Simulated scan of single mutants.
Amino acid sequence: MADEIRLEAPLMREGNEALKTGDVVLLSGVLYTARDAAHARMKEAIENGDDLPFDPEGQIVYFTGPAPARPGHAIGPAGPTTASRMDPYSPLLVERGLKGMVGKGLRSEAVRDAMREHGCVYFGAVEGTAALLADRVKDAEVVAYEDLGAEAIRRLVVEDFPVIVVNDLHGGDLYLEGRERWRKRAPVGEGS
Rank of each mutant, 00 (worst) to 15 (best):
D3M: 12
D3F: 06
E4D: 13
I5S: 08
E8R: 15
A9Q: 10
M12H: 15
G15F: 05
N16K: 00
G22H: 02
V25C: 14
L26P: 01
L27H: 04
S28P: 03
S28N: 07
G29A: 12
L31C: 01
R35S: 05
A37S: 14
A37P: 02
A37N: 03
A37W: 01
M42K: 13
I46N: 06
I46H: 05
G49E: 09
D51V: 04
P53C: 08
F54H: 08
E57I: 06
E57S: 08
G58N: 09
G58L: 10
Q59G: 01
I60A: 06
V61P: 03
V61L: 14
V61D: 03
V61A: 09
P68R: 12
R70I: 04
R70T: 13
H73R: 15
A74F: 09
G76I: 08
G76L: 09
P77Q: 01
G79E: 00
P80D: 12
T81P: 13
T81H: 13
A83E: 09
S84W: 08
S84R: 13
R85S: 11
D87T: 09
P88I: 02
Y89D: 00
S90F: 02
L92P: 03
E95M: 07
G100F: 04
M101P: 04
V102K: 07
G103E: 09
G105E: 01
A110H: 12
A110W: 06
V111T: 10
D113S: 08
D113C: 03
Y122N: 12
F123C: 08
G124N: 02
G124F: 00
V126Q: 12
E127H: 08
A130Q: 02
A131V: 04
L132A: 14
D135Y: 02
V137C: 05
K138H: 12
E141C: 03
V142A: 08
V143I: 15
Y145Q: 08
Y145G: 07
E151R: 02
A152I: 08
A152V: 07
R154K: 10
R154A: 01
R155Q: 10
R155M: 06
L156Q: 07
V157C: 05
E159R: 15
F161D: 00
P162Q: 10
I164V: 15
N167S: 11
D173M: 04
Y175D: 12
L176R: 12
E177F: 03
R179F: 09
W182F: 14
R183E: 14
R185M: 14
A186N: 03
A186I: 03
V188E: 14
G191L: 05
